[in-house]
Amino acid sequence: MSVLVYLALYAGAAVFVAASLVRAWMYARAPLHLRWELYPVPHEDPAKVKHGGSYFEDKDWWTHKRAYNLAGELGVMVPEMLFLKALHEFNRKLWYRSFPFHFGLYLLIGACGLLLLAALLGLFAPTLMAGALGMAFHWLYTVVGVAGVALALVGAVGLLHRRLTDEDLKTYTTAGDIFNLLFFIVSFGVLCAGFLLRGPGGPGVLAMVQGLLTFNKTLEVPGLLAVGIVLCALLAAYIPLTHMSHFVGKYFTYHDVRWNDQVNLRGSKIEAKLVEYLTYKPTWSAPHVTADGKRTWADVATTNPWEGAKK
């Protein structure tokens, strides 16, 4: 049983990381698109961010040195990532469900990190972990983990309830959307039940993580808990294969689209990229485009099919 649990966890984590990276790589390697920013852009000059202004508000803007306001960008990014600020502002009803769900997941990830650290310290510095530090870790990952699972579970149930009852959402809800939420609820539910009903005498959570790290086959993982862990591993592998991978997508929608106001200066890297793209050969079929698969974008853009034609 323990071997199966270990394999599921390693495989789940590996698929999660690999699929997320592949997705990120696919977005990152897409050509630099035309500018499509949306104001306010938070890395602008703070005086401009207040009203959503841009450097286009400055006379002869190209003669000014542009400052990158990292603090401004972090000031939007961090509350957005941690507290789903946009949802809080524009869709409060959904935020009451979505925030606990997402924050619960963050706490769970945090608890996993703490457990891993505690397990490693326990393996490599057992004396250090024997006393108060070990106890502190124990309480910390237990509280954070339990709070995480509870919040995520409550949030997921709330989201499912809304999906099933809100008229506005019904038209757009697919079987997959329901399945996804049920997958969370069942996985976390079984994990919770397995943890609470694991009975005395079995290995603790820390021991299980140490078993995972050392591939300790002798460890007896209680049945229900093992099922919960395997389900969570499957869930982790599944998430990046779906639209729920928006933790990857969102990085690009914000940084590469909404906030990408990088200027194309003569001789810049951007210009070099554009020069390359202008050699691409489009195949659009409408006659006015004058694309035939042999002519480049530069040819198309500098062709005026109506030059000299009378009105």
Partner: peptide, 15 residues
């Protein structure tokens, strides 16, 4: 890139 992102990540939340 922006088109693919909009295709693959809408959460259908109707915000």
């Amino acid at each position: 890139q922006p088109l693919v992102l909009s295709m693959e990540h809408c959460a259908k939340c109707q915000t």
